[in-house]
Amino acid sequence: MNTMNMLDKNLDTKTTKIAARDVNVYYGDSHAIKDVNVEIDANTVTAFIGPSGCGKSTFLRCINRMNDTIDVCRVTGDILLDGEDIYDKRVDPVQLRARVGMVFQKPNPFPKSIYDNVAYGPRIHGLSRNKAELDEIVEKSLRRAAIWEEVKDRLHAPGTGLSGGQQQRLCIARAIATEPEVLLMDEPCSALDPIATAQVEELIDELRANYSVVIVTHSMQQAARVSQKTAFFHLGNLVEFGPTGQIFTNPDDPRTESYITGRIG
C-alpha cells in the first residue's frame, strides 16, 4: 500500500491540484474554518485528521461546494481547482461535482438497482452515447471499486440489498463513474469491518494513479496507512500539514503530537 514514507520526499515535484487561499467558513456567527491555506497535490492521497468539530469535514465539503446547500454557511477566500476559482459565479456546482466526487461516511446508495446507481452520473452528464458504452462504464467502475465479481450476476438487484461494505464500494463505483479528477471521502470506512476497510484502502491506493484523493478519517492508523500527506485540523485551524511519515514520527507542532499520540480528545 503506502510505499515507504521515505518516498514522501519526492512529492515536492508533484503538481498542485487544489489550492486553498485564506479560506474562512462561517455557520451563522460560528467561525468554523479560520484562514486555511493548503495545497493538495495531484495523484496524492491527502488525509485530514483532527478531533470532532475541528472543521476537517467542513473544509472537505468546501472543495466541491457541498456547503452551498446550507443556508447559513458562508465561505470566503479562494479555492482553486487547476488554478480556477471554484466559487466563481460562472462555475456550475453540478459540473464541479462531476469533477470533484464525494463518498460519505454512511453508504447511501440510491433506492435503485446496482446498475442504475453507477449509471446515474454518466447518464445525467451525458457521458455515453449508447447502452453498450454505458454498460462498459458501469462494469469498469464496479471493477475499479473491487466489487464487480460480487455483483456481476445481480446488476439489476437493488443496491440497498448489499452488505454495508459492498454498499460503500458501490458508492465509490458511483463516485468514480463520472471520471472525477478529485475524490473526497468523508470517513469512508467508519461503518466497515476490517476486511472491507482493507479493500477500500487498497482501492484508495489504486485510485491515486488517476485522481487526487482527500480523505477525512478519525482513524490515525488509516491516515498513516493510506496517505502521503496529512493535515491536522484543530479548532478550525490548519495546525500542521506535511508528509505523513514525518507527521507520525516527528510532528513540528505540539498540538499535532498530543493528538496523534492520544493526549487530547
Binding site: 492508523q221 498513516a224 507520525f248 514520527t249 516527528n250 499535532t256 503530537e257 496523534i260 499520540t261
Partner: peptide, 9 residues
C-alpha cells in the same frame, strides 16, 4: 498501542 511520534521514539 500503535505508538506514534514521541511514543514511537
Amino acid at each position: 498501542r500503535a505508538p506514534a511520534a514521541v511514543d514511537l521514539r
